[in-house]
């Protein structure tokens, strides 16, 4: 948390103001029409969620190895972001699904994998909230297992169900749709980083307050 934070905030604010202009300017998708525009929110929120999953996992490994409370604070911040961005993805997905496929929830591999991953991090937060003292290391193990679970969840759900647009859709988009998409993705990832910094600092402050309180009591 430094002087760079206000600069980052300004850049991000600019990006979020400009993103709708780009999205409006992008052409209509031939079969889905206007509905497809939700993709510019849906895909970036999943990207931000996966970034947060890996930050939470990596920070938890660091916490287990070094016992550094700063790593734990980063892991908590990232886990909360997984839940927040996951919720955006899980709301925009069915909204798109009902228009494009006619069903709210089709158990498609990616939606289902994301739901499972989202549940793992909700379990992480439940543990932090209700586990009482000493649950930090256990929570770190949950985040670590959650991160390593990503390929297994995807593999198993993919073998079980298939309906979602293929992964190649994103790379084969025409430039007119690809540019707003990557711009939105960059904005969402930047937002994730900014929130991560803010929430980690809050967690540090909370820990400092706890320590001060304990020192006062002694």
């Amino acid at each position: 948390m430094s002087k760079s934070f206000p600069v980052l905030t300004l850049i991000l604010a600019g990006m979020f103001v400009y993103a709708p202009v780009l999205i409006v300017g992008a052409p209509y998708e031939s079969t889905m029409g206007l509905v497809q525009k939700i993709f510019y929110f849906h895909f970036p929120s999943w990207m931000a969620m996966f970034l947060a999953v890996f930050v939470a996992g990596a920070a938890s490994v660091a916490f287990l190895v070094r016992r550094n409370p700063r790593a734990d604070a980063l892991a908590v911040a990232a886990a909360e972001l997984v839940v927040v961005f996951g919720a955006i993805g899980l709301i925009t997905g069915p909204l798109w699904g009902i228009k494009a496929w006619g069903v709210w929830w089709s158990w498609d591999p990616r939606g289902t994998s994301a739901l499972v991953l989202w549940l793992i991090f909700i379990a992480y937060l439940l543990l932090r909230r209700f586990g009482g003292p000493g649950s930090e290391r256990l929570a770190a193990a949950v985040a670590l297992f959650g991160m390593f679970n990503v390929p297994f969840v995807y593999w198993s759900v993919n073998l079980w169900r298939t309906l979602h647009p293929k992964t190649t859709v994103v790379s084969s988009l025409p430039v007119s749709m690809g540019a707003p998409l990557w711009f939105s993705t960059a904005a969402f990832l930047g937002l994730a980083v900014a929130l991560l910094m803010l929430r980690t600092r809050l967690e540090h402050r909370r820990a400092e307050l706890d320590q001060l309180f304990l020192a006062l009591e002694d």
């Binding site: 949950v142 297992f145 679970n149 969840v153 198993s156």
Partner: peptide, 10 residues
């Protein structure tokens, strides 16, 4: 169960 079931989904 809250921790175990989501992680053992695969």
């Amino acid at each position: 169960p809250v921790l175990l079931y989501p992680i053992t989904v695969p």
